[in-house]
Amino acid sequence: MAASGIVFVLFVLVHMYGNLKAFSGEVAFNEYAHHLRIFGEPMLPENGLLWIIRIVLLVSLVAHVGSAVALMRRARAQRPVKYQVKRNNASSLSSRTMRWGGLTLFVFLIWHLLNFTIVKINPAGDQSADITENPYRLMVSSFDLWWMTLIYLVAMLALGFHLHHGTYSALQTLGWVNSASARAKAKIAGWVIAIVIAGGFSLVPLAVLFGVID
């Protein structure tokens, strides 16, 4: 769970950085998107790096979901009779929403890939190649719709929650939080990662919606 989670944290960090290229304009953004495809040529074939990353992500996803399901099954089997009254005294909201939040992210991921990678759906309607094969135009066209921006912001809220507990939890699972001061630092790391990544991702759709990017 922790190892696959760290793969995702590193991935979303780089992904978020790439998205911020939108602030440099259409040429820079599309150049970045194109460069990802030819990264490492001629040592790697076209899309070589992308496929390596996709396979690593897919394996991590299977490991992450598999671990989550195993944990959930063990927890259910362990407490067949529920408490009549149960209070949460210490757990954060983010830690208690890991399962539903994870499911939210999974559903979002399917739409996100259909939107920008697998099918390249323009939710605004115009499915011509001028837009769907131009990453920058497809992005602007998508986030010009308020409800698309809303979907992405909700997903980023879920991502922020997931990263807040996930980062801290991964450090704890890997055995790196062995003192009170290390715990304080690990909790701060959770906040920083969550705010930087979810906040960084949210900037682009908000900028499109408010006309900063067009």
């Binding site: 944990l71 830690s95 801290y168 890997l174 055995g175 290390a182």
Partner: peptide, 28 residues
Amino acid sequence: FGGCTNIGECTAACPKGIPLDVISQLNK
């Protein structure tokens, strides 16, 4: 017994105040 997801309810309930550090040590 179930798996640990590091949420910290255990240490809050512990009458002896044993900190979560011990779970990190266990993992290490």
